[in-house]
Design a protein around this nucleic acid. Sequence first.
RNA 1: GGUGAUGUAGCUCAGCUGGUUAGAGCGCGGCAUUCAUAAUGCUGAGGUCGGUGGUUCAAGUCCACCCAUCACCA
Length: 678
Amino acid sequence: MSDKKRQILVTSALPYANGAIHLGHMLEYIQTDIWARFQRAQGHECYFAWADDAHGTPVMLWARSEGKSPEELIDMMNEEHKTDFRDFGVSFDNYSSTHSEYNREQVEKIYHRLDEAGYIERRNIKQLYDEKEGMFLPDRFIRGTCPKCGSEDQYGDSCESCGSTYAPTDLINPRSAISGNAPVLRESEHYFVRLSDFEQRLKDWMGSGALQPEIANKMQEWFTDGLRDWDISRDAPYFGFLIPGTEDKYFYVWVDAPVGYVASFRELCEREGLDFDAWWEPGSTAEVYHFIGKDIVYFHTLFWPAMLMGARMRTPTAVYAHGFLTVGGAKMSKSRGTFIRARTYLDHLHPDYLRYYFAAKLGPGTGDIDLNLEDFVARVNSDVVGKVVNIASRCAGFIQRNFDGMLAQQLPQPELYDSFIEQRQTIAADFEGRNYQSAVRRIMALADEANRYIDNEKPWQQIKQEGMEAHVQAVCTQGINLFRVLITYLAPILPFTLHKAGEFLGRDLQQWQALDQALLGVKINTFQPLLTRIDPVKIKAMIEDSKESLQPATATGNEPASQPAEEDLTDEITIEEFLKVDLRIALITAAEAVPEADKLLKLSLDIGGESRTVFAGIKSAYDPAELVGRHTVMVANLKPRKMRFGTSEGMVLAAGPGGSDLFLLQPDEGATPGMRVT
RNA sequence: GGUGAUGUAGCUCAGCUGGUUAGAGCGCGGCAUUCAUAAUGCUGAGGUCGGUGGUUCAAGUCCACCCAUCACCA
């Protein structure tokens, strides 16, 4: 704990405005929130401000497909996101959108300053253009054959098959992922920030302790390769901010996204009367911290500080990256039901459970965090309910029943209380260093000690002995005071439970400073269960819901079916059994022959928001080219099967004996990808 | 392909600058206890520290290579 009051601004990365919040997002927001709450509990002035990332091509296309304006959609998502955060106890001070006038103002200010200082360069580049859609194509919206390994249907920037990276213009047979047309090369003027101008300053910043060691290591790579200019413009049509002085050039979404941190804080300043400049002028003594995922380190440790330097603003005090969330040791999967939305979680489980579990596993590094559901139940039930909350529970009854809720005037073992208080600095240092797992370990060790103390004193026996009443009262007062220390330490992690504990003890428990005085001779309220155990049934229900909430996102098909011409009917099944087979309408977005196999075609299927790769044994009957664009039916929940050429994630349906007599199923006009077939 | 990271008991994880019999929690076995939301205390059994080869008097801890997983490559 520092005795000086610090001024701190923390941010989380901006979630994209076209989708729901899921538990992967929540890992970061909970990490950030714990840190912010911790700082406030130390008495510091700490704000948490961030926003939706609303700009870019995906939102534009989404709006187009919904037949709505982007504004309408992002406003809706913004509300939804905020509700999710609040219900998870995320104590943000402001949540905005990058599509705001505050942001426009900041973006333009930064741009003008960069331009005036000569950091912006304009030059023509050639880019692939979709004539049918009338737009330049982002790399991700171009598909084609990998120039290195020849794999078909790869993205414009890298090949998922061989992993090589290249320019979209290197692709063989490029195609627009939007219209399917072959794009043409067209010239356009783009705006660049000369990053190399900032190389030395970035190195200095990096050396100032702003980064975790592994991130600093990673950055060496960028410097070694030499900093390239950064293209900050995009051509119309685009959903974003127009670059001042142009008619059809927009800022690239990664320009205005981080500026969103500043703009959101600006908005907060106006509302709360804070001095914006005191936080963002160079040399500011306020601290600014960005919490981000390891995937966007690049933008936050190169572009962002460079932009701030060029715009004569202060740079972040530090950027902290965390790892990814896996569920059950694997990437979150929609078909397995482990792609869990924040809302779905909240429908079934208490937010403090997850906050505790994440805290118990988060360290200062960038390693991935696994949500193991059995471990989750065991850990939360044992630690929070069985150990911590139980301390209050087992003492409260005596105080209530025998002493009318009054605590004793003195602690029987003040030295035990003091030993708990002595851990304050150590635990604070853990929180400060984002080593929450270490803090949690220490706190739980103290909880064990508190339980041991009560066990040794055996108040349930003493209360039966004549003349021991006062001692029982003292012992339970001691227990409740130890509980109070523990729950105060856990305050940043368990805001809801803390609130209930505050009602029980009749006071606010957030400030760590308040622990200097033990609670003595005061009346406390009737104990209500602060947090109950997790019922594993609810976990199951949550997983089931997660499967259901994803209509348009499930499996793919794999082996094509080449059946003998005539077969006896198989045994009869019930409707329930049939419903286990999840059949979906699929759009064939790409098809190619597998050279090493005589029967297989590799199909890419779109089942409404999710893409599947399926190896189908229909090579003998279909030419890959004629399949692209067709709709068919696939088994979407078939267990993925590893094949020599890759993993087949489902199976398409076809009839016929085989050879050239194979007939792929096709739905009537009107069926769209992802529809369930029943 | 390049780069960064991760790989320690059934599960989830600690192990700082190399040094006595590798630690914790959960789970599991035994005992005790009944105040508490079946919670608590004591105790026991579990690991050739991803693999191979090095450096060293000494390596989970350093080096090289390999394997697996995650991320990034503007």
